[in-house]
Simulated assay, not measured.
Amino acid sequence: MRDAGPTRRTVLAGLGALVAAGVGATACTSDDKSGPTPQQRKADDDIRDRATAAANTLLDRYAAVAAAHPSLTDRLRPCSDAVGAHLTALGGARTPPPAPGAPAEPVPADEAGALADLAARELQGSDGRLADVAAASPDLARLLASVSACQYVHAKQLGSAS
């Protein structure tokens, strides 16, 4: 039985349409050699800040799940590494993880619950990056669309893991 969410084909087609729209918008203004406006640079900076903060938070969550469920470490590493690559591509840096003993959201006690929690967080991140595509410059929009698609795939992989 299929879940109620969109299919991978639907998501990828939608992302392709968004990227194509961004490329089309760029083509229409390619004669303008002045570059992005100050408002666009500010919008891109705000978008990058949100995306890098979200990536750092997600990396912290992957670390917390791996610490709580060491048997999942190898299984989570590819997704966690990809989130780290997203952070780098966005121009961000890894922030130090929360100090031990700092109040943190508890990790579900069972592995299936922990994986479902990570899947939900990846899906939320995918939605967040996709929501910022329209306000981003064309290059950043393409990057956000790629990150969103990757996070969507992570959510599906983690959600279907058994």
Rank of each mutant, 00 (worst) to 15 (best):
D127K: 04
D127M: 05
P36F: 15
E122G: 00
G24P: 01
A112Y: 05
T73K: 10
D139R: 15
V23K: 02
A155H: 02
A89T: 13
D132V: 07
S30E: 02
I47W: 14
A104N: 08
A68S: 10
A27W: 09
S146F: 09
K156P: 02
Q157N: 08
G125N: 03
G14N: 15
S137V: 09
G113E: 01
P96L: 10
L90G: 07
G22Y: 05
S71N: 06
A66M: 12
V19E: 01
Q151D: 07
D127P: 00
E105Y: 07
G84T: 14
L123M: 06
L158N: 04
P70D: 07
P138L: 06
A4W: 13
A85S: 14
L118W: 07
L140M: 13
R41Q: 13
T10M: 15
H154Q: 03
A89V: 06
R77K: 15
R9F: 12
A116V: 01
L59Y: 06
D127R: 06
L123Q: 03
A104C: 07
G128Q: 11
A17W: 00
L87A: 11
P96I: 06
L123D: 03
G5N: 15
D31F: 08
A135T: 09
L130R: 15
H154D: 04
R94N: 10
A135C: 03
R121N: 00
K42M: 15
P70C: 05
A85V: 14
A131K: 14
A51K: 09
L130M: 13
A93R: 13
G22H: 14
R142E: 02
A20K: 05
A141F: 05
K156V: 12
A136V: 09
A145S: 12
L130F: 11
D3A: 12
R129T: 10
L144I: 10
P108T: 02
S160I: 01
E105D: 12
P138G: 02
E122P: 00
D81F: 01
A85C: 08
R8F: 10
L158K: 01
A89E: 14
A112R: 09
H69F: 04
A149Q: 04
R48V: 14
S162P: 15
S80R: 12
E122W: 00
A55V: 12
S34T: 09
G91V: 11
R142Q: 04
L12N: 09
A134W: 10
A120H: 03
L140F: 13
A112I: 00
A85F: 05
G22L: 06
L58C: 07
T52M: 09
A136T: 12
T7S: 15
D60Q: 06
D32P: 08
V153M: 02
A21M: 07
I47Q: 13
D44T: 11
A27Y: 08
V153P: 01
H154P: 00
G101H: 09
S71V: 02
A131E: 09
A27D: 01
L59W: 05
L140W: 14
V65W: 11
A93L: 12
L58S: 08
A64P: 00
G84N: 10
P6N: 14
A64I: 05
A114T: 04
C79N: 10
A114M: 01
A114W: 06
A141D: 00
P6E: 14
D31T: 03
A17T: 05
A85W: 06
A66Q: 12
L18V: 04
P98E: 12
